[in-house]
Amino acid sequence: MVKNSLIFIVLIGFAVLLADLFVGFNGNTDLNTLANHYAVSGPEEVGSANLVTAVVVTYRGLDTLGEVTILFLAAAIVSFLLKVEAGASLNRKLRSTSEILDTASRILVPVIFLFGIYVFINGHLSPGGGFQGGAIIASGLVLMLLAQPAKEVGHKLITLVESISGISFVLIGVAGVLFAAGFLDNKLLSLGKFGTIFSAGVIPIIYIFVGLKVGAELSGIITNLHENQNEA
């Protein structure tokens, strides 16, 4: 009884806290000068329907390159620390998966991959983008490993995708120096019609590479962690 009333008190406390936040919230409707600049001139200069994407890929494109590099370093360090000897496979005793989960995962994994790709291809039109799409692709890989723990995942394919997309990202940036106004410049391709899938210059292409790279890096981390859970 004491426990029940305690639970109720905690619940009511939560409600009071959240209600206070809710009542006290009045959204800041005026933009400051910087935000105003992006909001007004962003669509014309960049041609992206999603302003956040315009800031992330064009105005702050170098930062994105840095973030991808940090993620790459993290993946490289994880795979360095958790190095598996060649030929050593899993020697844990696992409970087998139920047949239903196995079948369901086989149907769902390609669907999740497709959805991840949808998220980063439409990064300049709708919420999401390279990082989110990459994370969704990696979660599809998690489902695959959950259903079939003993399956081998191709490290070579992951590394290949990762390197190619990283190099292409930098090459597009360099092409911006050669053929347009500067490194990672957006006007390398024409801006296209606002709001369609082929618009916003090179943003979709950069986001495809960012998404593939992030997905490959996270998948690499997950497979490395998975293969190193040997029973001591």
Binding site: R106, I107, P110, F113, L114
Partner: peptide, 16 residues
């Protein structure tokens, strides 16, 4: 294009 590529890659895994 996307569906074609994914179905070719995943086709050998998914036999259901």
């Amino acid at each position: 294009i996307l569906s074609f590529v994914i179905s070719i890659i995943m086709g050998s895994r998914i036999t259901v």
